[in-house]
Design a protein around this nucleic acid. Sequence first.
DNA 1: GCAATCATGCAACCATAGGTTGCACATTGC
DNA 2: GCAATGTGCAACCTATGGTTGCATGATTGC
Lengths: 115, 115
Amino acid sequence: MNTIDDELWSAIGDPTRRRMLDLLLAEGAGTATSLSARLPVTRQAIAKHLGVLDRVGLVHSAAAGRERRYQVDEAQLARAVAQLASVGSAWDARLQRIKRIAEAIQRANDERQSN
Amino acid sequence: MNTIDDELWSAIGDPTRRRMLDLLLAEGAGTATSLSARLPVTRQAIAKHLGVLDRVGLVHSAAAGRERRYQVDEAQLARAVAQLASVGSAWDARLQRIKRIAEAIQRANDERQSN
DNA sequence: GCAATCATGCAACCATAGGTTGCACATTGC
DNA sequence: GCAATGTGCAACCTATGGTTGCATGATTGC
């Protein structure tokens, strides 16, 4: 049931990293400096996050002259999205089941009332 | 675009808290002690997590004798699941678009080749 | 070629969060 | 009444997200 890779999840769990991924996806690529210009944290913080994202394989980097460009690894992000979806649907299923049970109890009570 | 409640997200972002929610859903309710028996952390750690989950409204608690029983707030968890799904589908959409663009470029290249 | 510039990398430091141990307090069961 | 059990509180440790400061390396303009 629990096929969750906590590393991947915690990588996308951080709000700053989620926004970084958003930006990288929207703009195709970016550097620590370019990302920090659009986020309310310093370049160094961004650099650390890029390190984390790189280690779990969500982004790749390539040196380009004096700058280092990062871009999203689409396959890996797709895997992460799939995990999100799987957790969501697991909870959804449980919630549905609870709802059905609650309704069954309600129905039983209603019938008891009408006797 | 970003209607994400970071509080809610980070509440379910922690792996231990996710497992706690799983257990609470599966068993209906639980105490800090009962949960800690099934998780690899101490009761006190669980208690702190329950505090977090309580503050963001994902669980409710009620004192029952000497123990305090917690149970999931289904409506709030449903909201959280919806947010998960929304982030997932946003990224999915972007990935799809990137894929289409990539395919378009591929097609253009193929046509250029055949001339 | 060289100086100024710009992006990066590295180090020290701070605050918060997840985790632990230890202990005091309330409730329950015999 | 007393031992056992569940809880709550406090101190402490470590990792992590964040900061500032500085050194280094590639670019550009003259």
